[in-house]
């Protein structure tokens, strides 16, 4: 890497942005006060975070095959995260919990 071209710069920016989103998600997970709020903070944050990192890596990937694979991973993660968040939220709602804290 003798010189830094534009792609590298974009890639670095995306990666750092992704890391930031992850940080946000973690802070949200730790600091928000009930289950739904935490869910809210987390799912968005980590998906965007993963998206940014995936995008950043795609720019650096050695082949189209690798790009496709990373894209697939991202897509799958989106789908899984969506469904998981939905399921857990539903579960939590049915339990009547989340807002009311359960005794440990």
């Amino acid at each position: 890497m003798e010189t830094i071209d534009l792609i590298d710069l974009v890639s670095i920016g995306l990666l750092l942005l992704g890391a930031l989103f992850f940080l946000t998600g973690t802070v949200g997970l730790l600091r928000f006060n009930n289950c739904f709020a935490r869910l809210h903070a987390l799912t968005k944050a980590d998906n965007v975070g993963l998206g940014c990192i995936a995008l950043g890596l795609m720019l650096q990937a050695e082949s189209g095959w690798a790009v496709a694979k990373i894209a697939l991973i991202w897509a799958l993660a989106q789908l899984a995260a969506t469904v998981s968040a939905h399921l857990i939220a539903r579960f939590s709602l049915r339990l009547g919990g989340g807002v009311r804290r359960m005794p440990p």
């Binding site: 899984a80 939905h86 399921l87 539903r90």
Partner: peptide, 8 residues
């Protein structure tokens, strides 16, 4: 069944 499970 929860809504999204089918498509998933």
């Amino acid at each position: 069944e929860p809504l999204l499970v089918g498509p998933l």
